[in-house]
């Protein structure tokens, strides 16, 4: 699930404001609390219990089969830090997260500014950029596997061959190239979506700001850095947060494009959890990884919340 909360001006008038003054009877209260029940059940059984289980298992050598579970302390956590596949997974996941966040942001902001101008074919251009966000990343990963194939019909290699006479490059079977390929496809898939997000915020910037700036003789560059960029800060915070969390949770794309390979070059944390937990039955190890992962994502979420609050206090 890739979702997030957003700071939004809460409306203080309305349902909330007056409800406290109108308490019903106990019966009313009970009926009302019953509405909360499904959400609480979901929360307890889909979040609290499994998280507690994960934490408990992370301290044991539970394999799912043996009935005698031994408490092993932090040994699973130590294993993660020495296991080559898990270290590779941590490394690549972080690289993917940071890489896509930085490059997509650098592409999406200027792209949004251009897409916001009026030109012939604008709607078509917007749609083409946005399109990769619609289908499943897993299917796109599979399609790209063909595009980057070393065979003749792999279109990247055949084009390179035709235009420059460069021999087939092992896009997906060389460690470094595979990492680059996965990240580039990730960027390709996300840039348009984030440009649309920025565009939505761009359209809320009053035109008068630019008119005044032009009268004062500000150049296009000065307008961008003086008006556009500062006013896009809320969008920037949201967009980078979404990119970073999606990056840390990435699974579909590397799994379908390279299956984590060659070796463990494009192995991800999620794939690591799934393989250790479901296929190998190493519950202790998978759980320890899941716990570390939760802490990392939570830290990121709280960091973002703090950043948003700080920015709001300064600018609003």
């Amino acid at each position: 699930m890739t979702t997030t909360m957003l700071p939004r001006a809460t409306v203080r008038e309305g349902l909330v404001a007056r409800s406290r003054r109108r308490p019903g009877g106990w019966k009313q209260l009970a009926v009302n609390q019953a509405f909360l029940l499904p959400a609480i059940v979901v929360f307890v059984f889909l979040f609290v219990v499994p998280l507690a289980q994960s934490f408990y298992w992370s301290l044991t050598d539970f394999t799912g089969y043996s009935s005698d579970v031994t408490f092993v302390g932090l040994s699973n956590y130590r294993t993660i830090l020495t296991d080559p596949s898990m270290l590779a997974a941590l490394g690549f996941t972080l690289l993917f997260g940071v890489g896509t966040t930085v490059v997509v942001t650098l592409i999406a902001i200027p792209l949004a500014v251009q897409l916001n101008k009026r030109f012939f074919g604008r709607n078509l251009v917007r749609s083409l950029w946005f399109f990769p966000a619609i289908p499943s990343m897993a299917i796109l990963g599979l399609v790209w596997r063909y595009i980057l194939s070393p065979l003749e019909s792999g279109v990247v290699n055949s084009t390179l061959q035709d235009l420059f006479g460069v021999g087939p490059l092992a896009w997906l079977s060389d460690g470094t190239l595979a990492r680059v390929s996965v990240i580039v496809v990730g960027i390709w898939a996300a840039a348009g979506w984030h440009a649309v997000l920025y565009m939505a915020y761009l359209q809320s910037i009053p035109n008068e700001y630019y008119e005044v700036a032009r009268i004062d003789g500000a150049s296009a560059r000065q307008q961008f850095f003086g008006i556009t960029l500062p006013l896009l800060t809320p969008a920037l915070v949201i967009s980078t947060f979404l990119l970073m969390t999606a990056g840390l949770k990435v699974f579909d794309l590397p799994y379908t494009l390279t299956n984590g390979g060659p070796g463990f070059s494009t192995y991800t944390i999620t794939q690591s959890i799934v393989v250790a937990g479901v296929s190998q039955g190493r519950y202790g190890l998978a759980s320890a990884l899941a716990v570390l992962f939760t802490i990392a994502v939570a830290a990121l979420a709280f960091g973002q919340l703090w950043l948003t609050k700080t920015i709001e206090r300064r600018f609003v």
């Binding site: 994960s54 699974f251 944390i269 519950y283």
Partner: peptide
């Protein structure tokens, strides 16, 4: 909201 699906997947 914060807990990613991956973290609760195995249990």
């Amino acid at each position: 909201f914060i807990v990613p699906g991956q973290s609760t997947l195995i249990p």
